[in-house]
Write a protein that binds this DNA or RNA. Structure first.
Lengths: 197, 197, 197, 197
DNA sequence: CATGAATGAGGTTTCATTCAT
DNA sequence: CATGAATGAAACCTCATTCAT
């Protein structure tokens, strides 16, 4: 019988190594050989688990998005107030990003836009926007937010804000308290759309 | 003397062609040959004006940033109220971006972070953050914004918000009114940090 | 004892699978993995029976030649007239080829010439030429063929004719009655070298 | 102005080098690097003239076939007797092959059969068969060949014979007088199908 | 014995850059 | 000055073969 290996585990190992290399070099500059070395395996072995460099990248992206989704899901169901939901959404997103080097997000975005290859990711984004919009709707219904609120625009703004702060976190790496700043931003923003009592 | 003018004109022509190609393909996938063809000149001629592909890219980035700077500057000096300054800053930024394909921003960000090669751009960013922070400071001084406002964080948030919305504009290309959404975002945000009268 | 039989059977099984794959893809494009799958065994197992891909190929060739040899032998001893011997040789050769996909001959020939690796096959060819030449000699002795016949050349011609028709059979696959055409060719040829009575 | 080169000449130079390497190694074993070295140019230069190794190979094949066609054409129009036409066809074919290493034919045949990529070559073959068949028809009309001659089969036989002898020439390289043997074969064969007077 | 996971040598191809004209 | 022909480094990927189980 042949060597017994946990194929799934090794796939993950490659994925982790790839995550690291992609984060540092970007998709284009990342070399398969380096991923292999980082994973402590031979170059050829990579191709036993992934058909191409692109495929590794796609799987990393997917893993990344799942992480965010999980973190958000874990937090959301604990609160009721739409304002809390929005804040927990923000914190959950940030938390889901934390295990990843922030730089990977650059390639993530680039990949989303440039190649129409990732319709799945586009789907997820659309879903996020919809979910956030629902929170705003709830807030309007509950009389917390102004009645004339453009909830679609608000959802886009929140998502955009989080992405943008993520970007700032990358550039300003050293002295940037992501969670803290996001919290401040959410506070200001939410107060700004509250209904005048 | 006329030669110098000519040289400058050709440099710009190359830059424009490069902008187009970079926007469509990204830095990595853009070929020097294609830029040359787009510019209507020979491949080798490129190297009479730029030392490398990287250098072309850097110059495009710089051109991009100058455009924003110009647009912002043109608007800022017309208003006095810090809130107006912030809004004009946002609108100016967007206006400055408009002549450029939004996709180029992806590589712009990637380049800023990844390579320590563009310290100049980092400088500019820092400068922006400082400028925006000043507006907030003014607002606090003038008793418009809350006294305990973390102006550094606020500056980061505004820059981040604009970047993030730019990203959303790219992803959501078709139906996205950048200026309109940014306006809504600024309104909400500014209202959120105003001093309770 | 039973183990040996088993081993031989598996060797044959591999050989058959290889024959199939080689015929379809050619030596260069045939993958060991595909042969293994075709044979219903593991990739590594191949190497328990053959030292290399080349060795498998060689054994297939040998099998092929033995098949021809057997077919020819079975027919030759039944006739006496040199003309009949030559015709039976031709028919036997064709018959021996029949169980094989004609395409394999391409690699067969390529292998014979290119690599000095198959001296054994060269030997066999030389032997064939010699045998055929003997038939011609017999015919001359018996006063059937012209006295001045270049029997060496004739042997080469007959072998060449059969090979060449085999090639045509491959190219013209669909509508080609090998045995029929070979028969016509032999008739014409033999009549052409008969002694004028 | 850039280097001025005779692109057509360089293409030919590459083709010649390729012919040499392909003949010795075969398509699969021939390395682009070796072709480049043989042509005295850089590896990358090859790709300025051909898109792939396959394309080089195809062009070599085409060149080969054109050579044969030219040689045959030059001889045919000088004779009238169908027997002479057939002999000149044979000699012309051989002559057309002479400038080429005989080994290339192996890959030529393999290419014809294996890849449906070369329908052009198939066309040419069909054309040849047709032309040869016409010669036989003429012979029958003129009362030189037997009336019941299967001219289609005869054409196939002649083409097959020439190919087969070519093959023998490869295997028996050193002591093989192609032209001489082909002549003998044609004589015998033609005599065999002549009408009994 | 049998297996398939692991490997790395080696091949093709791309493309930024150079440089002769 | 302008050009594009030439180049070779470098990268992806394949696959015969090995070997631990």
């Amino acid at each position: 019988m042949p060597k017994i290996v946990d194929k799934e585990a090794k796939r993950r190992k490659i994925q982790e190594a790839a995550l690291h290399v992609f984060a540092n070099k970007g998709l284009a500059e990342a070399k398969v050989a380096e991923i292999a070395k980082e994973a402590g395996i031979g170059k050829g072995t990579i191709y036993e688990y992934y058909r191409s460099k692109e495929e590794i990248f796609d799987s990393v992206i997917q893993f990344f998005m799942e992480s965010i989704e999980t973190s958000v899901a874990k937090r959301i169901f604990k609160v009721q107030d739409p304002r809390d939901k929005l804040k927990q959404f923000a914190l959950g997103t940030i938390e889901g990003c934390e295990p990843f080097p922030p730089e990977i997000m650059l390639d993530f975005w680039t990949s989303i836009y440039r190649s129409g290859k990732t319709p799945k990711v586009q789907e997820i984004l659309k879903h996020y926007r919809y979910v956030v919009q629902q929170y705003f709707e709830e807030g309007v219904q509950a009389g917390i937010f102004r009645e004339d609120l453009d909830t679609t625009a608000m959802a886009t703004i929140i998502i955009g804000l989080l992405d943008g702060l993520g970007l700032q976190a990358i550039v300003d790496k050293e002295n940037f308290a992501f969670a803290d700043i996001a919290d401040k931003a959410m506070d200001a923003f939410l107060r700004g759309i509250e209904k005048d009592q």
